[in-house]
Amino acid sequence: MADEAKIFGVCGEFDDVTAAVRAARAVREAGYTRFDVYSPFPIHGIDSAMGIRPTILPWIVLACGLTGCLTGLGLAIYTMAPPPEFTIPSPWGPIPGYPLLISGKPLLSLPAFIPIVFELTILFSAFGAVFGMLLLNRLPMLYRPLFRQGGFKRVTQDRIVIAIEAIDPQFDEMEVTAFLSAQGAADVQTVDK
């Protein structure tokens, strides 16, 4: 048996969605926790088969959206109707507001600020959704041990790969290889780090 410290894990290929979902469920039920199913598209029903818990991403987006909303409100109110006796300090000196009295309209005209507040809410939320997703997925990560595995190139096209990683407490190279083969995986291989 090879030195387990140098192994990333063991992976097996599937070309049928039903078999892959079935195998993923079996892997989880066998008690493995550090495994993943790699597929060219999101597989319907894989979340429950693998036991993936809902992501916290929506909460990140909510926080970003509220930040955007407050930023918009703060920006518009501070610059258009600056509070008396208060300026924002900066290394280049205080940044004053710029009240403009136009046609005797009130300085604090909230309805006119709504478009700005709305757009900034959306903008910040979108940043939260995209960069939050990348952060949670730990992307970008240009190198992965699996990329060296020749068959893995088909994962972005038409193959599904299940990999059980060596850091799984239950991991044993022989056992995992046999287990994946028993689930119907073709081309079961050990991937080095």
Binding site: Y38, F41, P42, M50, I52, P54, M133, N137, P140, L142
Partner: peptide
């Protein structure tokens, strides 16, 4: 960005896409 098609990634990806 080193996308590898992981189902755990797809899960967050789909959620992000829905939110967007």
């Amino acid at each position: 960005l080193g996308w590898c098609g992981s189902s755990r990634h797809w899960h967050r990806f789909e959620r992000a896409y829905l939110i967007l």
